[in-house]
Design a protein around this nucleic acid. Structure first.
Length: 242
DNA sequence: AATAGTGCCAACCGCTGGAAA
DNA sequence: CTTTCCAGCGGTTGGCACTAT
C-alpha cells in the first residue's frame, strides 16, 4: 500500500565529503540539472543518501554560493530579517543572494546570538533576559499585570518598540550591565483596526525608499481635507528606524 | 612544546507538509 | 481516506583549527 520507493535503500557513507564525491555530484548536476534527489546517488554512483547529496549541493557545491566572511551590510540584513521572520533561515537566506540557510543559521548562532546574550537580551524575543519567566530575576519584575502577561499576538500597531541600528551594532561590544530599561516587544502582524478606513504604510520595510515610493503623506493631507477621517499609519517593521 | 579551552562550520538528525499511490 | 515517500527545514553535534595558558 502507499507510494513505492523510487530507489533501493542501500547502506550509505556518512561524514565529510571527499573530492571525488564532490566531483561526481558536480558533474551530474552540470549534465542533468534539477532532478530527483532520491534517485541521484545511484545515478551518480555515490554511496550517499539523496538527502546528503542535496545538502552538500545546496550548502557547498552550488555555483552561486558566496563564501567568505559576511559583510557588515549582510549582518545588518540578517539581524533585520531575523527580527521580522524569526528562525526562518530559509526565508532569510532567500533574501541574501549567495548565502545559504545553513550559513546564516551558523553565523547567527555563533556571532549574533551571543552578542545579544552578552547584553542580557533574549535573541528571540529581544526582551531583557530578566523579564523572562526562566530568569532568576523574573519574579522581581512581575508585580504588575503588564509584566505577568505573555503576549503571543504580534501586531504592527503603534506604538512599536524600536531597537535602533546603533543599538544592535553596539551589541558587538560586550557590556556588563544587564536588563536595560527598554521595552523590546516585537510586533509582526497587521494590526486590528476598528476604523476600516485606516491604511497601513509598508514602505519602511526593508528595501524600499520611503521618500520615493510612499505617497501616504500626501494622501493624509488630501483625506484630511476631505474630512473623511481616513488616516495612514506608518509602521517600521523592524523597529530600526533611525 | 604540550595541553586545555573555545570558535566555527559541515554534516547529520528528526520533524513536517505536500504529493503520490 | 489512508499510507508511504520525499523534499525541505530548523536544531544539534562532531571534529578540525585556532588561541590561551
Amino acid at each position: 500500500m502507499g507510494r513505492p520507493p523510487c530507489c533501493e535503500k542501500t547502506p550509505t557513507n556518512k561524514g565529510p565529503w571527499t573530492k571525488e564525491e564532490d566531483d561526481k555530484l558536480i558533474a551530474y548536476k552540470k549534465a542533468h540539472g534539477e532532478g530527483s534527489w532520491g534517485s541521484l546517488p545511484k545515478a551518480v554512483g555515490l554511496l550517499r543518501s539523496g538527502k546528503s547529496c542535496r545538502l552538500r549541493w545546496i550548502n557547498y557545491l552550488r555555483p552561486d554560493i558566496k563564501r567568505g566572511k559576511f559583510t557588515e551590510q549582510e549582518v545588518e540584513l540578517i539581524i533585520e530579517f531575523h527580527s521580522l521572520l524569526g528562525n526562518k533561515w530559509s526565508l532569510i537566506a532567500a533574501r541574501l543572494p549567495g548565502r545559504t540557510d545553513n550559513d546564516i543559521k551558523n553565523y547567527w548562532n555563533t556571532h549574533v546570538k551571543r552578542k545579544f546574550l552578552n547584553r542580557g537580551i533574549d535573541p528571540l524575543t529581544r526582551k531583557p533576559l530578566c523579564q523572562l519567566p526562566s530568569h532568576p530575576d523574573f519574579s522581581t519584575t512581575t508585580n504588575n499585570a503588564a509584566a505577568t502577561t505573555t503576549t503571543k499576538t504580534h501586531s504592527f500597531s503603534a506604538p512599536i518598540t524600536r531597537i535602533k541600528k546603533e543599538e544592535i551594532l553596539e551589541i558587538q561590544k560586550p557590556k556588563l550591565e544587564r536588563c536595560p530599561d527598554l521595552n523590546l516587544d516585537l510586533r509582526i502582524s497587521p494590526p486590528y483596526q476598528q476604523n476600516s478606513a485606516t491604511r497601513i504604510c509598508f514602505t519602511q520595510s526593508p528595501g524600499l525608499q520611503t521618500s520615493q515610493n510612499c505617497n501616504c503623506t500626501q494622501d493624509i493631507v488630501a483625506n484630511n481635507n476631505n474630512s473623511n477621517n481616513a488616516t495612514a499609519i506608518y509602521y517600521d517593521f523592524l523597529g530600526l528606524e533611525d
